[in-house]
Amino acid sequence: MLLVLGVAASVVLHARMALAGVHGPGWSVLMGVMALLCLSCLAGLVRAGEPTATVRMVMGTALAMALGHVLLLPLLGGSSGAHGAHAHHGRAAPVDAASGAGHGGMLLVVGVELAVAAVAVVWTRRHTQRITYQPV
């Protein structure tokens, strides 16, 4: 259940970033695609049956997404100059972290993705132990 909630939060965060459109239409389309990919994992987790393969896919994808978002942090400034990541200091109005704009939104996504990966690891470990240590 916790894993489903984490993936659902990831869907919502990516959709909000896509709809906010703060980083331009190209990034908005990419965020929409990421939301759809997260939604496909969510459907796999909710579907009846053995979710082991889906949980492993969620774990790998969440780790890859966390790494990708961390690597994108320097690009958030919107400047290709030497100041790069710090160009947002010149903005007149603060940006809403929940919309995915700026470092706050990106760090929120990284936190959610790392939490999803951790829950997937715990689920996988418990599921593997349950299979391995079944009493006869």
Rank of each mutant, 00 (worst) to 15 (best):
A64H: 01
G49I: 03
L39T: 13
Q129G: 03
L114I: 13
L5D: 14
G100D: 09
A120L: 03
L76N: 00
S28E: 15
H127P: 00
V95P: 02
S28I: 12
L3R: 05
A87Y: 04
L36W: 04
G104P: 15
G6C: 15
V121N: 00
H127M: 10
S99N: 10
C41R: 11
V95Y: 11
G104L: 10
V12G: 01
P51M: 03
H127R: 11
A15L: 15
Y133H: 13
V116T: 08
V29Q: 14
S80M: 10
R56E: 10
V11H: 06
E113V: 08
V109C: 15
A35T: 06
G24T: 10
H127C: 03
L45A: 05
V12F: 09
V7R: 04
V12H: 12
R130C: 04
R16D: 08
E50N: 15
S99V: 08
P51L: 00
L36P: 07
A66T: 02
R130A: 15
M65H: 02
G44V: 11
V58F: 01
V58E: 00
G32I: 07
G104H: 15
C41I: 02
S40Q: 06
G26I: 05
T128G: 00
M34V: 07
L71Q: 04
G60W: 04
V11G: 06
G102V: 11
A53E: 08
G60D: 01
A15E: 10
A62T: 00
E50H: 13
L73G: 01
W27M: 15
Q129L: 15
V22T: 12
A35E: 11
A35Y: 07
V122M: 02
V29H: 11
E113D: 10
G6M: 02
G32N: 06
H23C: 06
A87D: 09
M1H: 05
V11S: 09
A117R: 01
A93H: 13
G44I: 07
M65S: 05
G111K: 15
L76S: 05
A101N: 12
A15T: 14
P25F: 12
A120Y: 08
G81R: 04
L2P: 03
A53W: 04
G81F: 01
A35S: 08
V116Y: 00
G60E: 01
W27Y: 15
L37R: 07
A101M: 12
G78Y: 02
A8N: 11
L5F: 11
T124E: 08
R56Y: 03
A85H: 07
L13I: 08
M31F: 14
A66C: 05
E50L: 01
A120M: 05
T61C: 07
